[in-house]
Amino acid sequence: MKMLSSDENRYGLNRELAQMLKSGVIMDVTTPEQARIAEEAGACAVMALERIPADIRMAGGVSRMSDPEMIRGIQDAVSIPVMAKCRIGHFVEAQILEAIEIDYIDESEVLSPADDVHHIDKSTFKVPFVCGARNLGEALRRIGEGASMIRTKGEPGTGDIVQAVSHMRAMNQDIAALSSIRRDEVHEFAKRIGAPLDLAMYVHDHGRLPVVNFAAGGVATPADAALMMQLGADGVFVGSGIFRSGNPEKRAAAIVKAVTNFDDPTILAEVSSGLGEAMVGINKDEIEKLNNIKMAERGQ
């Protein structure tokens, strides 16, 4: 068996934690009480943050990493993995999250970027990172920087699934295109999408990303979650969609079941029934009119 360096081994363990989360739902929570509701509803992990994306949009201003004390409160409240967000490029926020032993850091476009050029060099951390991507080039750049999990960006805080669908389709199309070309054509392909060559070669040879890819950004209903799973997502993040809806407990549990049985319309019909009001939502055209924030364009 090949001997791994301790950094390679740590990266492997971090990729494997993401594998354990597959076919699961990761839910945004802002209080220990919400975290307990999420865990009881069947969340496989929670994302601790001060404000859900819908409220970040409403509030405007600069949005930052959450207070470590608030995150600790959530870590104490649940036994499932706890994730938290830092700003793109803000490696000190990431150091702080590592110091409180967060299970996964989301270097997230939902917060205000701290660096408009560079992402965090995630390979220097022991704690794992998940990053958003709209296409294969972005995904492989983030993995090259050390991300051990990828998610679509979608358009967070909108309750509108259209962007997540578009990002997942773009990813799948890029992967299909890269896998179907000759090996000696991968160099040019990698250059064109701005991806590290070794990772492009991996995708060419294996026909998939080297890490788990979740759907995120705009999931509001069990049907949205199942749609993303049928499009090939390994699991789903749900942000504003749960605690912004009429009956969070019931909706959360329904989305969990929809992800497990994403290809069974009978079960999907059952779990979609009587959920009360969904998150109201705003679509991306309205966002542009309202405040001109398209979060997905942050950090490319």
Binding site: G24, G42, A45, S79, I80, V256, T260, N261
Partner: peptide, 30 residues
């Protein structure tokens, strides 16, 4: 994934890694 799958013939069962709280809850709910 669902109760009717348990009607199929099987000689052994594997319960994988994941979150035990999630799998346990789904086993009960389903």
């Amino acid at each position: 994934r669902k109760p009717s799958d348990l009607d199929r013939r099987m000689d052994g069962l594997i319960i994988p890694g994941g979150e035990s709280t999630v799998i346990g809850k789904l086993l009960v709910d389903m």
